[in-house]
Amino acid sequence: MSDTHRPTTTAPFALSALPATWHSENGTPPPRRLIAADDSLRAEAAYRLVCEGTALLWQGAYPDALRLLHAMRRRAERPRPRSRSVLDSPAEAFRKHRRERARLARVLGMLLVPLDTDHRVRLDRAPDVREACLAAYGPLLDNRIVSLRELLGVIGAHQWRVRGVEVPALGARIHPHYGVFSPVRGEYVDLVARAPLPPAALTHPTAHDLGTGTGVLAAVLARRGLRRVLVTDANPRALACARDNARRLGLADHIETAGTALYPPGGDRTALVVCNPPWLPGRPTSTLDQGVYDRDTRMLQGFLDGLADRLLPGGEGWLILSDLAERLGLRTRADLLCAVSGAGLRVTGRLDTVPRHPRATATDRSDPLQRARAGEITSLWRLAPA
């Protein structure tokens, strides 16, 4: 979007007057003020409007909407003046980083596009997004208004789903669904692939995978000879994704979805319980954030508190956890070990690995979290009743 375009005359109108329904996967409430906009709106004026809380319903061509979004992003990402009198702690740098990302998401999410019931974007030169939107949203009963930023996320997620993610530990690809955290960080999968199975697994080859996500860890366990792996996840999309991947890998007879509670219902004991909870304490602000942030460490604590009563004699719980929270000052190692012992558990062993993802090896000094990421260690904690 060129900055030299003259602003168009716009007329405010209430969202309720539109023949469409507001839709946000992140639970963002509908904007209080909405105006029509097209390619006559300058980027500077558009950015000022969205910062003031006015959403823009795009009426022009789709490529122009993309250009405007990029122009708004450049303005939103301009360095902001900050005080140099106080050196931020890692925890405070992290909190500022999250606040800034939330601001960016809020501002850029104010550029909206119309979506028909047949999942078509009603704009000139818009791509065919029907397959991607159907996979993410399911059937639509009415026209929708969605954030262009969200729509781009839907399109990108569908490309991941079609192509899949190569998982060396499986020698195959995992296909993440929209809203399900993708296993692009393979080091934690490798830990599950090489950790010694507990003695109970020799006579009772069963396991639970809590918070299964794409089902990648359940697939690794099934490939290692565990004949029945029950998987749970609070996100119904994740359960559908795990079923899909189990079918693709020929493991549908060994992997069974068991609902949205943390532990499978019924109280059955098993040889192994695996849990890869979100690694950072904090409140998730989006669907994908739920794979990163564990509000009040509820999932971690729930796993620990319920573990002893779910293990067979000779069974183990495997906790896969990064120490990034410790490096950021959000949790201490003493806190973690206290939670383990407080749940009547003991540590019988630990396997460590270092991350291989690009952020861990980057040298971006402007990233306040770079130092913590560079030293990050991911561990598989082997736990048993005390």
Rank of each mutant, 00 (worst) to 15 (best):
R359P: 00
T287W: 04
A386S: 15
T54F: 04
R333Q: 13
Y178K: 02
G213P: 07
D244K: 06
A36D: 09
G171M: 12
T10R: 13
L272C: 06
H357Y: 15
Y263N: 03
G314V: 12
L115N: 00
R350A: 10
R163P: 01
D305M: 01
L280E: 08
R78P: 01
L69G: 05
H254W: 11
G342W: 04
S322E: 02
D88S: 07
R32C: 05
P90H: 09
L337I: 12
R350F: 00
I320F: 05
P176H: 09
L148K: 01
R382L: 05
R373Y: 15
R227E: 14
A207R: 01
V220P: 01
F181W: 10
L230Q: 11
I255R: 06
R98L: 13
V189I: 15
R173P: 01
L251A: 08
L319H: 03
L351H: 06
P358E: 07
E77H: 01
A201N: 07
A36Y: 06
A55C: 02
P90C: 02
D142P: 01
R75H: 15
I155T: 10
A136G: 08
C338R: 11
E187F: 08
H254F: 04
V347H: 07
P30D: 03
L104I: 02
G225T: 07
V154S: 00
P196Y: 15
L18A: 15
R78Q: 10
Y178V: 12
A271G: 12
A65V: 11
E166I: 14
A20C: 09
G186I: 06
H175F: 14
R106S: 11
A261W: 04
G344H: 09
S83Q: 14
A61G: 09
V162G: 02
D253H: 13
G315R: 01
D244L: 05
V347C: 06
E316G: 00
G302W: 06
G215A: 14
Q370N: 07
V146P: 00
V154R: 00
R373H: 15
R48C: 00
D364I: 13
A339W: 12
D352K: 08
T348Q: 07
R95N: 10
A372Y: 06
L324I: 12
R295G: 09
R359V: 14
P81Q: 12
